[in-house]
Design a protein around this nucleic acid. Structure first.
Lengths: 358, 358
DNA sequence: AAGCACAATGATTGCGCTATCATCAGCATG
DNA sequence: CATGCTGATGATAGCGCAATCATTGTGCTT
């Protein structure tokens, strides 16, 4: 009685129905009918093929291919409460910093069979809260979110979610779950120390967007200058606008204007700003690095190739995405992780734009 | 009998169960019980609030907030066969060209309440086929995919999907459904005509990755030079590697070497390559634009700011994402669209790097 | 006052799949 | 030869929600 009742129901009514309207969605049952097995066997062929005998497996697979069957993930997720979805929230799609992290995430998650549902929070905690709701409504198996300034409500949701969560980009004092990042404040501090070491004395600061991580870099900058007794608050020029090369040029001009040109170095919170400052300095006939040092942040590819090459702070963005993803996958597979918090570190890539010539 | 049977079942058993284990997933029914209404009313509060009286709506909303209820999208999608998901397939996450298109897509889709499921095909039609299956398994309501070189099987799936599909980036002779892009071949042709018009005579070509769109640009380049009787096949240097500034520099050196430096202009298929060529030329003490014109493609921000500023072909990437998304949304809302095919056009931004000085 | 339209709410059912348990044949064990 | 075990397959139930249709109450018309 294994194939009898099936073959009865199968051929005649199904076939005609299907031929007539090829728009009908093909389901597991259709495949089961077509291949003369039960629905659950088809399910097994797809999800646990090792549990099905080879002959049946081939037979079913043939039907799957013939019908062009594509499983309905919603039904599967509902029944199994496994979505194979990882939610990712980043503040900006257009910022190269995040797209490289994303690359790492997609690489690892894709290989592990997870889909990535990506949302853009536009640097707004409120937007982020909405987006996290959206993510959670997809029953993700894990979450990667940026930074630590979630709203109270958002934190609540996240805690209640009971799934592995990694907060990336910065090191957090009190992470929700896991954390991969680096110390932005210390990086800013180190940059200034380095510039001071190169003999630059009046070090300006250019910042845009001013998200929490940028603020931390600025605090580091400030601290180092204060320690050296060289902090002047009008050496800082910032804007809430997003970063861009154009904005970098504008801010550089502002800085030069507001300080009457006494500045002999600029720390820009990212490389777009730094490139803008550099190009603008060239147009203003200010020699870099002789009269002006310029240091960026992130070490994008252009930094190494522009003339003069641009000093910048290199951080393993791709690796950060990889690490965060691996942590989640390990947790999902009940494997131990070394630590819930990983400091990716950073490195100042010293190049021509800050090298005092002898 | 409107609230009676509810209140019976409700308070005592549910409450205790919930208090004990706060990890139990909260469902529509929990909210219904907690607020003394039926499940379907809760559903309405969420999806069609205008159909529920204000008093009840507030009462239910209170319960939703109190319980921190988040709807299960899988169940919703399964029951309503509406996923509110749009699938997007792009060949590369790290290419700025696509991230800007993505921005446009996210902007429009987010505002319209759609989630974006994004996959990366790594410029491989086979990978793309797999990814499209993944997308389709999520029952997306629409699809945005890049270009036209899908595998046969993939095309099959797409045709069978019966959802609005937009192929973006290039103009296709035979699109699956809708199409938004621009004419890469013509753009390449026009660039060469422009360079010839500027008086450059021995125009080289630098290309990387060599995806279909890059090939089209190259064909345009070739055609224009052939028409002018100035085509030399050793003026073309390409690599299958991904584009980067570094690769641009290398290819420029190769081109100079293989042509003994007779080249007086280069058309680079994108701005990364062009910047690499420009920076390398500077290092080689080749004057741009006096001894060498350099033209890029895509008109990224840096092109306008680098010294000398870089001529490039500007295309509305963000707008392309917006247009594609709007088309899908219009179709989903049964609104008419002007045309199934949209040519976004392009514009050569003529800058210093190709301006023959008098 | 009867009839009707309409707004507000609820009961039932099923979306497509998988978890769970049941069944059964084949075979080894004592 | 009874017992238990294993591997392969199936039957059933239910995941959480919304479509559909049913029910009730309200105000209005005539």
């Amino acid at each position: 009685m294994l194939a009898k009742n099936n073959s009865q129901v199968q051929i005649l009514p199904m076939k005609t129905a299907k031929k007539r309207s090829s728009d009908k969605k093909i389901t597991l049952v259709d495949v089961a009918d077509a291949s003369g097995v039960s629905a659950i066997t088809v399910s097994r062929v797809i999800n646990q093929p090792e549990k099905v005998s080879e002959s049946l497996r081939i037979q079913v697979q043939k039907a799957i291919d013939a019908l062009g069957y594509i499983p309905n993930q919603h039904a599967s997720s509902l029944a199994s409460s496994k979505s194979k979805v990882i939610g990712v929230a980043i503040p900006s799609l257009s910022n190269i910093v995040f797209t490289e992290v994303l690359r790492g995430i997609y690489e690892v998650m894709g290989a592990a069979g997870y889909k990535v549902l990506l949302v853009d929070t536009h640097y707004s905690p409120l937007e982020e809260e909405k987006m996290v709701r959206t993510l959670l409504s997809q029953s993700p198996e894990g979450l990667i979110i940026t930074g630590g300034d979630q709203t109270k409500a958002c934190q609540n949701f996240l805690h209640k979610a009971r799934i592995p969560i990694v907060q990336i980009m910065e090191l957090l004092a009190d992470p929700i779950d896991m954390n991969v990042g680096f110390a932005h404040g210390r990086a800013g501090f180190d940059v200034v120390k380095y510039l001071l070491g190169q003999g630059y004395e009046r070090i300006g600061f250019i910042g845009a967007r001013m998200d929490p991580r940028v603020q931390q870099r600025m605090q580091g900058y400030k601290l180092a200058l204060e320690q050296a007794g060289k902090f002047e608050k009008n050496y800082i020029v910032t804007t809430p606008e997003p970063s861009s090369i154009g904005v970098g040029g504008e801010l550089f001009k502002s800085l030069m204007a507001s300080t009457n040109g006494v500045i002999d170095a600029v720390f820009c919170v990212n490389d777009d700003l730094a490139l803008g400052a550099l190009f603008e300095a060239q147009r203003m006939n200010i020699r870099v690095p002789q009269d002006m040092a310029i240091c960026g942040f992130n070490d994008i590819e252009a930094a190494g190739y522009v003339n003069p090459s641009l000093t910048s702070v290199s951080v393993g963005r791709y690796e950060m995405g990889v690490k965060a993803s691996e942590m989640i996958i390990r947790v999902l597979n009940d494997k131990p992780i070394e630590s819930k918090k990983i400091d990716m570190g950073y490195e100042i890539r010293k190049r021509a734009s800050t090298t005092r010539l002898l």
